[in-house]
């Protein structure tokens, strides 16, 4: 094992709670090479640093993705980052793997429970509170690493591409929630569907999703030729190719090789992009 590989062992020990716990219990449990690296480390201190990193990792993401709930915390008295100081989070820490989707789901569940439990008074003041929590949770989850995708013959919806159905048109008021206001900005009450996608570089984007886009995504199983799908949906094959390229850039679909360039036809219904910082 060279020093770059030894560095990887240390990084995994820091980022992967179950791996760290197994190695601390038995340094030989992951093989002789790992044991050779571990021999040179102060494992008790490394464990403390791993816990510190875990709390820091999720705090950064809670602060970023739950920024609207934070901005409203004077009214709700529920700063979302407070969950990271609870006994529930502490008991979770040794099981967390930084970047892992299941770990992010576990932390997200804690956040949702904390923010929506016994929240009738909050809902009276902020009627779109549940939607806001769901929106931020979807963002938070989208940040996690995607599971490795099986190779498929045709484009497939990415497992990290999430559709969220809301009762309120939240994107209409989100920027206003971060600015000082006398009266709480209230979004229009109308069904709103959003698509969350994570790009290969890790950038999370949300776009409005109409019925045509939803049907297209649900039809992209990886086993169906997009041309056949377009034909079945009554869509123009030429514009579907353009849409697929946009969706691939966003990370909403995983394409194998190139899309067919033989398609021509009409435009897929417009989807308005609302990339978030």
């Amino acid at each position: 094992m060279n020093s770059r590989q030894a560095q990887d062992v240390i990084l995994r020990l820091l980022a992967d709670g179950p791996f760290r716990a197994a190695v601390m219990a038995d340094p030989e449990s992951r093989g002789a090479e790992v044991a050779g690296v571990v021999l040179g480390l102060d494992l008790a201190a490394l464990d403390r640093f791993g816990r510190f990193l875990g709390r820091h990792y999720y705090r950064e993401r809670v602060v970023h993705y739950f920024k609207y709930a934070r901005a409203l915390s004077a009214a709700t008295n529920r700063p979302p980052e407070a969950v990271l100081k609870t006994a529930e989070f502490k008991s979770l820490m040794s099981r967390l793997i930084l970047g892992d989707r299941a770990s992010a789901t576990a932390v997200s569940d804690l956040l949702r429970n904390d923010l929506t439990r016994d929240a009738e008074a909050i809902r009276s003041a902020i009627p779109f509170w549940d939607d806001l929590v769901a929106y931020q949770s979807a963002f938070f989850l989208s940040d996690a690493l995607p599971p490795s995708a099986a190779s498929r013959p045709f484009p497939a919806r990415a497992e990290t591409a999430t559709l969220l159905e809301l009762q309120w048109d939240l994107p209409a008021v989100l920027p206003a929630l971060l600015r000082p206001f006398d009266q709480l900005p209230i979004p229009p009450r109308q069904p709103t569907r959003l698509l969350f996608a994570r790009s290969p570089e890790g950038e999370v984007t949300v776009v409005r999703c109409n019925d045509a886009l939803r049907d297209l995504l649900e039809g992209l199983t990886g086993e169906v030729d997009p041309a056949a799908l377009a034909s079945r949906m009554g869509l123009d094959p030429g514009s579907i190719e353009k849409t697929l390229r946009q969706l691939e850039r966003l990370g909403a679909i995983i394409a194998q090789g190139s899309f067919s360039s033989s398609h021509v036809g009409s435009e897929l219904a417009d989807t308005r992009s609302a990339r978030q910082q």
Binding site: S3, Q7, D8, L11, L14, L53, L145
Partner: peptide
């Protein structure tokens, strides 16, 4: 050096490398 070569593990925080000739 904060991320493993395969991209699976990233501490997303500053962390120094091992100080070796190869590094």
């Amino acid at each position: 050096c904060v991320m493993t070569q395969d991209g699976r593990f990233n501490v997303d925080y500053v962390f120094p490398p091992l100080y070796t000739r190869d590094m």
